[in-house]
Write a protein that binds this DNA or RNA. Structure first.
Lengths: 158, 158
DNA sequence: CAAAATTCAATTGTACGCAAATTAATTTTG
DNA sequence: CAAAATTAATTTGCGTACAATTGAATTTTG
């Protein structure tokens, strides 16, 4: 009894290996995407999260900070400064909602609208870098969405 | 010609939707994992990247900062302060390699070693939260590793 | 073998990401 | 209708991430 079953009879030592962790695979893939996007986004002075905000606004312009946060899963503590930088870069405008002064409405500037056309080029670049077919990308995406839903459901059930 | 083909004949408008981005699916899953780990790691005063370092050290103790960085994909700019915090928390020790004073060797303390036993509990918690079978987790992991490799290969080929 | 180049870790500066506290506005309720 | 509760965004503080710089140690090379 030198090597296993010290803690439990079912989990082998190797289960702790980094390479065996699903979370680490996700973590690494996320970093890899970030690196792949960087050169494509640098041209526009954008970071990846800023690009996500623009993607959201291209689908639906004039959203509140809260709504944008729901779309991309970030809280206002992250978004407030990020949106200020997007505004300073000239891609969006921000103004208080006159009908509810608590809210701030974010909308694309002309420059922000124009960038949408360039975005298709970014899409192609990333698609190439990822090296998978549309079909394959769709499969992985769906699997990950499922996984994300499950993780976000919390420890309620088992 | 109101709606499409303004930019290209092949990419439809919907391709820009957040929900259609593989990168966003990965990004969201990574955040979901972070949230899932938080309550499990808070008990030990650890962050997720710190936990990754310990996972690496449990497989192979006494690594240099550079080596740890290669294992988990972080540079010294991130690791230096992170390792200092792990040291302050009592999980690792750091000392210059006497045979090459440029290097710093990181090794587990007794407390760090002991934590390995608790780690199996963390594994079980995450496994439950992810809601997928070992087999399914393995499939996703392998797919993501492949994707990561491809993204890291860079824009060399297409 | 000494100067130049390289390597490693730490530091600096910018930008997320999130929890907690703050402030202002709106809604609820006594 | 005024006090209490709630909501939205901002701010603050801490911990990643990463590019670029720095400084010390080692290797390479002239």
């Amino acid at each position: 009894m030198a090597n296993k079953a010290v803690h439990s009879d079912t989990i082998p030592e190797e289960a702790l290996a980094l390479g065996k962790q699903l979370c680490f695979a996700v973590y690494s893939a996320a970093h890899a995407f970030n690196r792949a996007y960087k050169p494509l986004l640098d041209r526009f002075g954008l970071t990846y999260p800023q690009y996500l905000v623009l993607l959201a606004l291209w689908q639906q312009d004039e959203m509140t900070v809260k709504r944008i946060g729901e779309e991309i899963g970030l809280d206002s503590g992250t978004l407030s400064p990020l949106l200020k930088r997007l505004e300073a870069a000239g891609y969006v405008g921000r103004q208080r909602d006159p009908s509810d002064e608590r809210q701030v409405i974010v909308r694309l500037t002309d420059k922000g609208q124009d960038l949408k056309n360039e975005a298709f080029g970014i899409l192609v670049g990333i698609s190439k870098a990822s090296g998978c077919s549309l079909k394959q990308a769709e499969d992985i995406r769906e699997t990950l969405h499922q996984l994300t839903r499950q993780l976000n459901a919390g420890p309620g059930e088992d």
